[in-house]
């Protein structure tokens, strides 16, 4: 496709879409959102890019092979279940750490969030593997 309108619009749309996908991922713990929707949104951004330009350009923009992204995501999700074992809990039990941010504030880092990051990457990777392989057919 060589629509100049779509191309220009995509260039403006792409950063907000990625930002929104990360936003969805981050708010997922307490509010609607999460790794799956975030991953879909991020995947949609790259799919849009591959439609407006071509698959090769989208691959170049992504830098990593989508299958590698999916594998890393699976590994992260798997590893997020392990910290619970060190405190004698069952696999995948939620564990939280307080990370000091200075001036008395803390960031609560929990394994459910790490799991969600893994889901995000898996969804992004699998979606783009399929979209790219369909797009390269033509």
């Amino acid at each position: 496709m060589t629509s100049i309108i779509l191309r220009t619009a995509t260039l403006y749309m792409f950063p907000p879409l990625i930002l929104f996908s990360v936003y969805l991922l981050l708010r997922g713990h307490h509010y609607p959102g999460g790794g799956f929707v975030g991953g879909l949104m991020g995947g949609a951004a790259f799919a849009l890019y591959s439609l407006a330009f071509n698959v090769a350009a989208a691959r170049k923009l992504l830098r990593f092979d989508p299958r590698d992204i999916a594998a890393v995501g699976l590994a992260i999700s798997l590893l997020s279940g392990l910290p619970a074992l060190f405190s004698g809990e069952v696999f995948l039990t939620g564990t939280w750490w307080k990370i000091p941010l200075g001036n008395g504030n803390y960031f609560d880092l929990g394994t459910p969030f790490i799991f969600d990051i893994g889901v995000y990457l898996v969804v992004l990777g699998v979606l783009l593997t399929l979209v790219f392989s369909l797009g390269e057919e033509e």
Binding site: F36, V126, L127, L130, L134
Partner: peptide, 15 residues
């Protein structure tokens, strides 16, 4: 989620 993945695969297979 599951039917999304399976349908996407079926689409590729059918193509």
């Amino acid at each position: 989620v599951i039917s999304f993945a399976v349908t996407a695969f079926a689409l590729v297979l059918f193509l």
